[in-house]
Amino acid sequence: MADAPKPLLHVEHLCKEFPVESGLIASHMKNARKVHAVNDVSFDIMPGETFGLVGESGCGKSTTGRCIMRLTEPTSGLVEFEGKDVGKMNKRELKALRRDMQFIFQDPYASLNPRMTIGEIISEPLIIHNVMPNADERIAFVRELLDVVGLNPEHINRYPHEFSGGQRQRVGIARAFALRPKLIICDEPVSALDVSIQAQVLNLLTDLQKEYGTAYLFIAHDLSVVQHISDRVAVMYLGSMMEYSDWRSLYAEPCHPYTQSLLSAVPIPDPDVQHSRKRIILKGDPPSPIEPPSGCLFHTRCPIAQARCSSETPQLREIAPGHFCSCHFAEPNPIKDASIEL
């Protein structure tokens, strides 16, 4: 397929394990217990697209994002950015990579240095990469950027604590866009914000994407937010990818029982719809990532699990063009009888 568009980011068999014991000796023991945070994750991101990554807390979605940027060193697997192996990059190459790949953090309070003005914060990437050596030019650019993200350019000399959460998140976005990166990893960028502010930030991200053609890896736990912003969506559970597809078919015809129950668990802000639909209530809690279940990771909570599921690990396979699912019994809406069990 010579003509197929080249992916901007290619992730293959990415794995990350964290030692449970933190001691110097214990963590190097051969049979030390490990948290399997990310387990054999593969996907591609095309230039300019938004790839959503959803899952519950502890499913490894944030770790995946951090491994791609090498903020956390992956245990194994391949990450390629524009065909270059990120894992093999030395310090200089990594610095160059970070011009093209940026990060937006969840917590607008912790992600801005309280001792720097927002002008200093936004111009920091420009200084590091020596993009605009002229200070006047840089200040003019930062003011312009503040205006673009909807902040008053006159506030360039203010400190983060003088801003509200939503405004701080705009500062974080301005910083990420300062170098006009090709890919931005957004780690729960709106989950700390109020509903009305959430919408402001989501619209800003969409507008900026339209203008600059940036691709997003959008990590979030809120399915409706991910659906709203993403072109393609992947669902993670216990460090593994359960299903991924374009947003329309994933939300309309989820083929993995986990995706289906996740979607049915999101309450819809419309009483008519909410009261008329069937809800699938999953039993129990997600298992511990230290000792993940054998076979299919979801079989302990799956309403349609069979004997095969606990012994045989399902592979991620293409069940329809562009729609991948890792379930032995993948089909649209696999859970037919939505029984409520507590």
């Binding site: 959430q198 989501l202 619209n203 409706s224 659906q227 709203h228 939300y251 979607l263 419309d270 719809v273």
Partner: peptide
Amino acid sequence: NRSIPDPVIDEKRPLTPI
């Protein structure tokens, strides 16, 4: 109401934030 993404629609509706 206008700020929240509607999870049931087929087409993406632009959000109108406050």
